[in-house]
Each structure stands twice: as C-alpha cells, then as structure tokens.
Simulated assay, not measured.
Amino acid sequence: MTAPATTIDSQYLSELLGSPTPPRVLDVRTPGEFESAHIAGAYNVPLDLLREHRDEIIKHLDEDVVLVCRSGQRATQAEETLRTAGFTNVHILDGGIAAWEAKGFAVNRGAQRWDLERQVRLVAGSIVLGSVLGSIAAPKLKWVAGAIGGGLTFAALSNTCAMGMMLAKLPYNRGAACDADTIVSQLVRG
C-alpha cells in the first residue's frame, strides 16, 4: 500500500518555485498539451512514458517533485507509480494546470490544442451519437453506443482511460520530441 498523495495548492507551489531550493515540476500531460501551456521550468514527462521508464527517471530525481496535469487525475496516477517504486518526496498540484491558471499564475504558451480530456469527450460523444442515429437503419449499432458507455463507466471506476491513452499517441498530441533519453538528459542538465 502506498502512502496517500500529498497535494499542494497553486499559491504554495508559486512560493516554492521562488525559493532557493525549488522542487522539480514534472508535467505528465501529452507533449501537445504541454506545448499549449505549462508552468515555466516544468519538465514534460508524459504519464505513459513515466510508467514505462519509471526506474530510469527516478535515478535523476533527488529533490522534491511536484506532478502536474490538467486537473489532477493523471498526476495522481503518476504519483502512485513513483511511490510504488519507493520515491516518496512527491506531491501533486491540487487542481492541476487548470487551477494554476484560474488563480492567475503565469504559464508559457505555445500552439493551442485541445486537452486530452476534451478530445475523449468529442470522440466518445461522436461515436455514441453516430451509433444511436445509425441504429435507425441498422439496429445493432446501438450496441456500439452501449460499449462506449461501458468503457466510460469502467474508466471512471478504475481512474484510467483507454481511449485517452490511444488518443495521446496521435500525431496531434505528440508535439516536440519527447522520449526517455531526451527527458533524462533534461533532468540531468536541470
């Protein structure tokens, strides 16, 4: 059993970032989301890459770490991944980048893209709507809508999202080069 997550709010993170020993900020969103808006000095370590290369990344983290995503869901998953590996000096930005921006704190902006959660809503909603409308001509299409509903229910209960993981791999969400070697070299230089 891992220790419970320690969340910090935007104001406290802002104070920590201005301190003599600021924490490392790891943004676990997709590279495309990161390019759209991120906290200055944050490192982009997408959740799937963090899970896959956890041990290698942890070797290069010796100070406090604050995990950031859009709202906190992916950061919570990343926190669990790190704590399971024995890395305990990890925190989650409460409310994620959405809360950070809502409090008026600055972000570095780039090309604007839809965040992953919005993309999931668009794709899932489109499939359900198309299936329901298509079921007028082909009644068995209603089962596609049911499968999507079941998948969304499972996603909520398990706090994972297979559709989101698949969408994260699309070129639209890739952005700048983001691989384990690049991330590790940035952490070493950091």
Rank of each mutant, 00 (worst) to 15 (best):
Thr2Asn: 07
Thr2His: 00
Pro4Glu: 04
Thr6Asp: 05
Thr7Arg: 05
Thr7Phe: 07
Gln11Lys: 11
Tyr12Asn: 11
Leu13Thr: 06
Ser14Gln: 09
Glu15Lys: 07
Glu15Val: 13
Gly18Cys: 03
Ser19Met: 06
Pro20Ile: 09
Thr21Gln: 11
Pro22His: 04
Pro22Met: 02
Val25Asn: 03
Leu26Arg: 03
Val28Pro: 01
Thr30Ile: 03
Pro31Ala: 09
Gly32Trp: 07
Phe34Glu: 07
Ala37Cys: 04
Ala37Lys: 12
His38Trp: 04
Ala42Ile: 05
Ala42Asp: 03
Ala42Leu: 04
Pro46His: 12
Leu47Ile: 15
Asp48Tyr: 04
Leu50His: 12
Arg54Met: 10
Ile57Asn: 04
Ile57Arg: 03
Lys59Leu: 11
Leu61Val: 10
Leu61Glu: 07
Glu63Cys: 11
Glu63Asp: 12
Val65Gln: 02
Val66Asp: 07
Val68Arg: 01
Arg70Asp: 06
Gly72Arg: 08
Gln73Pro: 00
Ala75Cys: 10
Ala78Ser: 13
Ala78Leu: 12
Thr81Met: 05
Leu82Ile: 06
Arg83Ile: 06
Ala85Pro: 00
His91Val: 00
Ile92Trp: 01
Leu93Cys: 04
Asp94Glu: 13
Gly95Trp: 06
Gly95Cys: 07
Gly95His: 10
Ala98Pro: 01
Ala98Leu: 15
Ala98Arg: 14
Ala98His: 12
Ala99Asn: 13
Ala99Arg: 15
Glu101Pro: 01
Ala102Thr: 10
Lys103Gly: 00
Phe105Asn: 08
Asn108Ser: 06
Arg109Pro: 01
Gly110Gln: 12
Gln112Ile: 08
Gln112Asp: 14
Glu117Leu: 14
Arg118Lys: 14
Gln119Ser: 15
Gln119Leu: 15
Val120Trp: 15
Val120Gly: 12
Arg121Leu: 15
Leu122Arg: 15
Gly125Val: 08
Ser126Thr: 13
Ile127Lys: 04
Gly130Leu: 14
Ser131Met: 08
Val132Ile: 15
Ser135Ala: 15
Ile136Thr: 08
Ala137Leu: 13
Ala138Thr: 11
Lys140Asp: 06
Leu141Arg: 02
Trp143Thr: 07
Trp143Met: 12
Trp143Leu: 13
Trp143Pro: 00
Gly146Phe: 13
Ala147Ser: 15
Gly149Tyr: 06
Gly150Arg: 05
Gly151Val: 11
Phe154Asn: 06
Ala155Met: 08
Leu157Lys: 08
Ser158Phe: 09
Asn159Arg: 13
Thr160Gly: 00
Cys161Lys: 02
Leu167Val: 00
Ala168Asn: 09
Ala168Thr: 06
Asn173Ser: 10
Gly175Ala: 13
Gly175Leu: 11
Ala177Tyr: 01
Asp179Ile: 10
Asp181Arg: 15
Thr182Lys: 14
Arg189Thr: 10
Arg189Ser: 13
Gly190Ala: 14
